[in-house]
Amino acid sequence: MEEEEVVAEEILDLPVEIISQILETNPTSSIKFIKIKHAIYAYWRVFRNVQDSLKGTNWKEEMGRVRNQGLCSDTCWAVVAAELVSALLFIKKINKTYIEYSAQDILDFADPEKARNCNRHDHYCYTLSIRKGLHYVLREGLQKEEHRPYKRCRHASEIPARIPRDLAHIDGVEMLSFDEALIKLETQPIGASLHIFMPDYKLVKKLYL
Rank of each mutant, 00 (worst) to 15 (best):
108 D>W: 00
63 M>A: 12
110 A>V: 13
4 E>H: 11
143 Q>R: 15
154 R>K: 15
201 Y>I: 15
48 R>W: 08
169 H>Q: 13
69 Q>Y: 08
2 E>D: 06
189 P>G: 05
208 Y>A: 03
156 A>W: 11
144 K>M: 11
204 V>I: 10
126 Y>K: 00
185 L>R: 00
27 P>V: 12
9 E>I: 07
187 T>L: 08
123 H>Y: 14
92 K>N: 07
127 T>Q: 14
173 V>K: 02
186 E>T: 09
87 A>Q: 00
132 K>W: 04
108 D>C: 13
24 E>D: 14
200 D>L: 14
201 Y>K: 04
111 D>P: 00
119 N>Y: 09
45 R>W: 11
178 F>H: 08
114 K>N: 06
175 M>P: 03
66 V>W: 05
85 V>G: 02
87 A>D: 01
34 I>L: 14
158 E>L: 14
131 R>N: 03
19 I>Q: 12
201 Y>E: 03
142 L>I: 10
94 I>Y: 09
90 F>N: 07
133 G>F: 01
40 I>P: 00
196 I>D: 03
64 G>A: 09
172 G>L: 06
154 R>C: 07
196 I>N: 09
160 P>M: 12
106 I>G: 00
195 H>C: 11
178 F>Q: 05
68 N>R: 10
106 I>W: 04
3 E>W: 09
139 R>Q: 07
9 E>Q: 12
61 E>Y: 09
55 K>G: 02
195 H>I: 00
44 W>K: 00
130 I>K: 00
19 I>M: 11
136 Y>I: 08
90 F>S: 04
70 G>K: 06
102 S>T: 11
103 A>V: 09
3 E>G: 04
191 G>Q: 02
161 A>V: 14
182 L>T: 05
13 D>P: 03
93 K>W: 06
199 P>R: 11
140 E>H: 13
100 E>R: 12
181 A>L: 13
197 F>A: 06
18 I>C: 05
129 S>T: 15
23 L>K: 15
78 A>T: 04
145 E>H: 13
194 L>C: 14
172 G>Y: 09
24 E>Y: 13
169 H>E: 10
105 D>Y: 04
165 R>V: 15
83 E>N: 15
11 I>T: 06
126 Y>A: 03
34 I>W: 01
14 L>E: 05
7 V>S: 12
52 D>L: 15
137 V>K: 09
124 Y>V: 01
42 A>G: 08
50 V>N: 04
148 R>D: 07
55 K>Y: 02
166 D>C: 08
118 C>N: 14
